[in-house]
Amino acid sequence: MSSLSNYGQVIAATTVALQSMLAGSPFGLNVTARSLDVARTGVTGSSINLFLYSDSLISYREASAQHGPSRVIAELRYLVSAFAADIEDTDAASHRDFGTAQAAIERHPVLTVPVTASEKLQVWLTPSPLTTEVLTSLWQASTAPLRVSFAVMASFTLDTTERVTKLGTIRDVVKLAGAGAIAVFSGTDAGAKAAAAASAASELGKALVTVGLESVVASSPEETDATLDRLFERVKEEGAVLLVDDADAVFGVRPEELDPDDPYAAIDVGAVLDRLGNAPSVVIIALTGVSGDELADRARVEVRFPAS
């Protein structure tokens, strides 16, 4: 899922996709996406212009989320205006294009928007109420003559991981102290992450137990539970802080469609994190990249390490 961090790219991609839909078969409209005062610059024949005049973001928290908003609904409002080929508009071309554009949006209420080469986003198109006052103020602000127009709202959902991540320092990890508190160490400097984990454990007066994913998850939920039971017993006996190293394959950002050959494809990441939340010590999860949704929601603090 696209995230709030690339909101600008998603807006641009949505505008381009809407423009392409109206310009493509069977509608074949001449479509621009400009400010109202220059909508007709260099354009011949009748045309439709898309003008993004407002947006809003509505945050919400999913039932599985424990800390802050996990998703945001974005609503983009476009003014869709029809322009005649000439001043007289003798063949009512602007009215024809106006109706064609309205019909196109009614017939295609869901727009598939390519955000990147590998990521697509579903966008819902809905006619949006447009009062005379709003319509008039938009055209007056542009100092352009009023044109026949309607509004459409494009809405989609974004992930807000970056918005709710709690960035901190090693001192913030030490302050966690309590059992089951989860911290994230992210970045490419493996040595710095290991040294920082050892330092945090020392500050807490504890040893450090470092394990890989094979000591945390297994091929089935039952085996994973048994694996974690053994790990927790070891951590408890040694009075240690737990470091799960090189954990991107499970706790990092994962593709929406997992490779069937991925050994971790069947892992319920949220369930594993819930279990780690019952660990007898602070848990540090080390990643090279970005936290996945479930980890970002449960982590109490993230410490980022620059590239070596």
Rank of each mutant, 00 (worst) to 15 (best):
303 V>K: 11
78 Y>M: 02
220 S>V: 04
165 T>C: 00
118 S>V: 11
69 P>R: 03
130 L>I: 12
56 S>V: 12
61 R>F: 03
162 E>S: 11
280 P>I: 07
294 E>D: 12
208 L>P: 03
185 F>N: 04
76 L>N: 09
222 E>L: 13
207 A>R: 11
161 T>E: 12
148 V>H: 08
278 N>H: 15
176 L>A: 06
282 V>T: 14
139 W>L: 09
11 I>D: 05
260 P>A: 07
308 S>E: 07
290 V>N: 06
110 V>S: 11
100 T>G: 10
77 R>V: 14
161 T>P: 02
293 D>N: 03
117 A>E: 13
80 V>E: 00
272 V>Y: 02
142 S>C: 08
8 G>E: 00
1 M>Y: 13
81 S>G: 10
18 L>W: 00
46 S>R: 01
90 T>F: 06
218 A>I: 07
24 G>Q: 11
145 P>C: 02
149 S>K: 09
15 T>C: 06
244 V>A: 05
86 D>C: 03
228 L>P: 08
279 A>F: 09
70 S>E: 06
65 A>V: 14
34 R>P: 02
291 S>A: 15
33 A>H: 12
252 G>Y: 11
260 P>Q: 08
174 V>K: 05
119 E>R: 12
293 D>C: 00
240 A>F: 01
308 S>F: 11
181 A>G: 02
293 D>L: 12
245 D>C: 01
126 T>N: 09
306 P>F: 08
294 E>N: 04
306 P>A: 13
6 N>W: 13
165 T>F: 00
285 I>G: 06
63 A>L: 09
31 V>K: 10
219 S>F: 01
195 A>R: 13
142 S>R: 12
134 V>G: 01
133 E>G: 06
114 P>S: 08
23 A>F: 12
179 A>E: 04
205 G>K: 08
190 A>P: 02
171 R>S: 15
15 T>W: 04
118 S>W: 03
145 P>Q: 14
60 Y>G: 10
209 V>G: 02
157 T>W: 05
70 S>M: 07
52 L>M: 11
58 I>T: 15
140 Q>V: 10
73 I>L: 15
188 T>L: 14
112 T>R: 15
112 T>Q: 15
291 S>R: 02
246 D>V: 09
133 E>K: 12
44 T>H: 07
38 V>E: 07
59 S>P: 13
245 D>I: 02
